[in-house]
Structure formats: C-alpha cells, structure tokens
C-alpha cells in the first residue's frame, strides 16, 4: 500500500515536471528545424531534416558574439559589485552596533518592495544626463541597487554561532581577520550561490536594458531575441528559438554546475521556523 501510494505521487510529480520542461525541449528542437517543418511537424521532437542553418544565420546577421560578450560583461560586473558590497554591508549589520542600525536596515530592505516602474523614469533621466545611454555602464549602474543580497548574506551570517566569534575576539583578532578567516569561509556557499543568482538574473534582465540600449552591437542577449520577433514581417520562430537556446545555455550551464550550492543555500536561507 505504501509503495502504491508513493507511486501515485511520483507519477504526479513526473507529469508536473513534464509540463514545465517541455517548452525548453520544444525550443531546442524547433531551433534545429527549417521553418516549413516547424509549421508542419509541430510535435516532432527530433526534426526530420535537422539543420544548423538557423544558428548560422543568427550569428551571421547579428553580432551575436559581441552581444553575448556584452551580456557577460554586464552580468559579471553587476555580480561582483553586488556580492562585495552585500558582504560588506551584511557584516556591518550583523557584527556591529550603531545608532539607527535597525532603521537603516529596514529602509534598505524596504527597497525590495519598490516596484521598478517607480524608479524607471527618473533613472532613465539620470542615465541620459550623465550621457550613459546606449552604453553598458548605463545598464549596469541602476541594477546595482538591490537589497536582496544584503538580506540573504545577513541571514547566512546570523546562523554562525556567536561563541565562535567571541572566541576569536578573545584572542585579540582584528575585524578583518575575523571576517576573512571565520565568517567568510562559513558563508562561502551562501555567497557563491547568491552570486550565481545575481549573475543569472542580470543575464536575463530585459526591461531595463531595452529602455537604455539603442545600438544592436551594444545589446544584451534577451534584447537580441526580440529582433527576431517581428509582427510586421512575421516571426521566424526557428530563428527566435535558436536565439533563445543561445540565451539559455550559460544560465543553464552555471546552474547545472553549481546546483548543489544553489539549492542548499536557498533551502537554508528560508527562515527557519
């Protein structure tokens, strides 16, 4: 009886998984089809006449190499900056006491609740006035103000037993030493996975870059996708799928490599009741 009911759950789960992963499978499969086959052989996962022409075309027609590089630069810069500042700020919030600490923390965390539509217009005007429109820096800068990193790393630091820190203090260790030798190693998993998530989110960012970037050579990958979705001339789905696959590969790759870290961090970042 136990086995039977468990099987029922497993079947349900597999079905749910199937539904959620199918679009990805379709995307990959369509990207290797000719347009006419995409329309006539909609359900076929393995194309009858597989072709690399879609990939060749998108790399020929667009500076896709440069675009991928742009995306990489943006995501990496945002990640590095946010990780470093989040670690620093979280450390200050956890291990120091100063006037207004809780208020300041509250204010910073509350920014997570500000809908991006509120800051969109002024940020656009600011970036324009500095002259950073159509420039990668213009895309990077506003993305840096994100409090989720401080939140997550603070959670992780607060799980470190205080006695450890106190013992180090008793041995007259300075702040920097404590940070480097005790705290950082213990929160390393959290930092890594937070970093990975920052990277992936920045990589996939669409709303802000589409406002700022004008030149196709400055584009990031999610923007490149819309170049192939044109209502006027018709969407060439095979090309769009090929671009989608290119956009998906790096986040997916990173995820598969660092999967354990990511899952573990978010599993334990949740607040323990």
């Amino acid at each position: 009886m136990r086995i039977e009911s468990n099987l029922k759950w497993h079947i349900l789960l597999i079905l749910a998984l199937f539904i959620s992963l199918m679009p990805i499978v379709f995307a990959v499969s369509t990207s290797f089809k000719e347009l006419s086959e995409a329309y006539s052989n909609v359900l076929g996962i393995i194309p009858d006449k597989p072709t690399l022409s879609n990939y060749l075309r998108i790399f020929q027609e667009l500076p896709l190499n440069k675009i991928t590089f742009n995306t990489l630069v943006v995501a990496a810069t945002v990640t590095i900056f946010k990780v470093i500042t989040s670690v620093m700020a979280a450390y200050a919030f956890v291990y120091f006491d100063f006037k207004g600490k809780n208020l300041l923390y509250f204010i910073l965390i509350s920014t997570i609740f500000i809908p991006f539509t509120m800051t969109m217009i002024p940020n656009y005007l600011i970036i324009s006035q500095i002259g950073l429109r159509n420039n990668i820096m213009g895309v990077i800068l506003p993305q840096l103000s994100d409090a989720t990193g401080i939140f997550l790393i603070r959670q992780a630091m607060r799980s470190i037993p205080m006695p450890l820190i106190e013992a180090a203090r008793l041995e007259a260790a300075g702040n920097f030493q404590i940070m480097a030798n005790i705290v950082l190693p213990l929160v390393k998993p959290a930092v890594i996975s937070t970093g990975i998530m920052f990277f992936i989110n920045s990589w996939n960012e669409y709303v802000w870059p589409v406002l700022i970037l004008k030149d196709t050579t400055n584009y990031t990958l999610p923007l490149a996708l819309q170049l192939f979705v044109s209502s006027e001339g018709g969407t060439d789905f095979c090309l769009a799928m090929a671009v989608s696959v290119v956009t998906m590969i790096i986040p997916l790759g990173l995820y598969l490599i660092f999967q354990k870290y990511i899952i573990n961090t978010f599993t334990s970042s949740g607040v323990k009741g």
Binding site: V73, T77, I80, G131, L132, N135, I136, M137
Partner: peptide, 17 residues
C-alpha cells in the same frame, strides 16, 4: 572579474553617448 571590470570601465567611460 577584476580584469573584465577594468575592461568595462575603460571602454565604458571612454565612450560617451
């Protein structure tokens, strides 16, 4: 990352709109 950042800063700051 540091390498990339410097590359970005160099190109980003130099290139104005």
């Amino acid at each position: 990352a540091v390498g990339l950042m410097s590359a970005v800063l160099l190109t980003g700051c130099g290139k104005s709109d």
